[in-house]
Design a binder for these strands. Sequence first.
DNA 1: AAACCCGTTGACAACGTTGTCATGCGCTGC
DNA 2: GCAGCGCATGACAACGTTGTCAACGGGTTT
Lengths: 340, 340
Amino acid sequence: MTTPTIHDVAREAGVSIKTVSRVVNGETNVRSGTAQAVQAAIDKLDYHPNRAARTLRTGIHDTIGLVVDSLSDPFFAQMTEVVQAEAVRNGMDVVVASTGLDSRRARAQVDRLARQGVAGLIFAPVGDDAVLSRWLPRHVPLVLLDRPVTTAHHDIVRVDDAAGASAAVAHLVSHGHRRIAFVGDVRGLATIHDRLVAYCTALEAAGIEVDPYLVETASYDRTTSMPFTTAVLALEDPPTAVLAATPLAGEGVVAALTALGRRREVAVVVFGDFPLADLLDPPMTVVDQDPAGLAREAVRRLLEQVSGTSGARETVVLRTRLVARGSGEIPGPYAAEASR
Amino acid sequence: MTTPTIHDVAREAGVSIKTVSRVVNGETNVRSGTAQAVQAAIDKLDYHPNRAARTLRTGIHDTIGLVVDSLSDPFFAQMTEVVQAEAVRNGMDVVVASTGLDSRRARAQVDRLARQGVAGLIFAPVGDDAVLSRWLPRHVPLVLLDRPVTTAHHDIVRVDDAAGASAAVAHLVSHGHRRIAFVGDVRGLATIHDRLVAYCTALEAAGIEVDPYLVETASYDRTTSMPFTTAVLALEDPPTAVLAATPLAGEGVVAALTALGRRREVAVVVFGDFPLADLLDPPMTVVDQDPAGLAREAVRRLLEQVSGTSGARETVVLRTRLVARGSGEIPGPYAAEASR
DNA sequence: AAACCCGTTGACAACGTTGTCATGCGCTGC
DNA sequence: GCAGCGCATGACAACGTTGTCAACGGGTTT
């Protein structure tokens, strides 16, 4: 009735609990005869070691904590899926938490998980770098996901935001655009800031001056990116292309273009792939961030830390991939020149 | 250096460990003076009880297991988000697992979590009812999410699939449609089957005969629903509207209509809301399943089971909500009659 | 034949916590 | 003034596991 313990197995097999323990943990110094008898008892009783007892005794945990912005964000949802799959492959479980991009909530969740006993944490950091690095736990393995914290020395797994944004700008320029708007929210996250800087650099590299009127740095979602897009398109010398720093910001761009009936006139590239991107009209050209790759690398690094294999801290930077689907290939006024 | 235990607190406060335990657990029979002293020691040392030890001693777990199809599915992702939030509100954590709609994987994950010690499980069941009811754990609190298992007697939290599908059909009929196609995958999940049955019933209630040529029951995603839609629209007497049983099936419908350039001619209603539904052209009319409500109810029922408050098993059926956005309001050939 | 060694096995303590029970103290009521 | 009672507190065992160390037995070496 009650779940069997190591004692029950020992009694059943006629050996001591220690011997059962040895068999369960695959220690070699057990005679194969006894090992078989023990295994038979284990199977018969359907015995499974008690995790709490084992954790208490050994201090070893088999749970990974994952703290992300929101599970409703497909980017993080997909990473969560992959982190979970990778964890299970390594005999671990994943407990999730979300921050809603609130740095205080983030801290509460990270502290809670770190305290409650996890083998390690994967965390998409939120908030001021200096503050973050002060409270980030140091006694528990930690991998920072997607966003770097410059002042901390932890493992970091992220994508090359600058290269991705550069590629997007270059792509638009190569299709004949020189008036390219930028829409995003630079205030909070360093990654978005990086994308903006790369946008500027790439423009200048193409011999195009950055026009501050075309840059919106406070658009988190469509509630602001939509009016901005509408307004900027009404300028005397409007942009012919837009780079959206995130899918959320991109929504507003698309919504504005839809409302103006200009979806097929203005080129759009969105940083970050999203579901149904290919069913929009035109299908959206995006910079894919490879969330699955990020998740895999994060788990790999974390398990290396946990097992002590890892030497120094490491920063893994994955490459982005520009996925041309249509919206980014709408030709601009200098298309003829550019294609030469 | 090492994390403080109850012994450290006891020494610091000059009391026995039992008294510290009493304070920590909020027992009343402690003189307020000693309680304060203990609390001071706790604060000073930043003591937090060891979960593993507590679980070992009491057998009480503070983790909820959540097993869903996939976290990449926005429906489940949103439910996961809400389950997690509700769990934290009640001092619990959530460990996630996904099945990929594979019943063996589902069983493995559920068994694993049930065995490893969770306070309870929330599970979106997959597979044959009879088989499921045979292995579903009975010694651990369990709430079935989104899909019923008729042969089991567990708590169930789901939406009224039949009513939702009926409403969708009635909506289309009221906009002048009589040739309405159905696209979905009935083979696996009972919910989809319910939607099909309700589709048939609703048509007959409107005096419309069900045309088997308009019904596709093996389309899980766009790889089959797209060709079906293309084919069915090429019939002599084609449908003027489509009911997609899921967002995934709906993708193929939209893709097909896009390819044919007939997005604004054929009415579409999708069972289940999805991100960007309102940015498609036309915006998609959907039957919203209230994932947040489902998640909240599931956690509520589970916690009732855990605390023993719950009496009999209960089935909670939430109402769906038809969200008219455009695609479902494209008028059909009998629009004039219908609007009278 | 005695000494030794190695491989197998078991007794026991310990991890940090809470339940059980006993102890001690100050009161109340006779 | 003494039995008795209630309340605060503590000593100790137990939850199920693994690390430490000792014991045992059979074979090899001297």
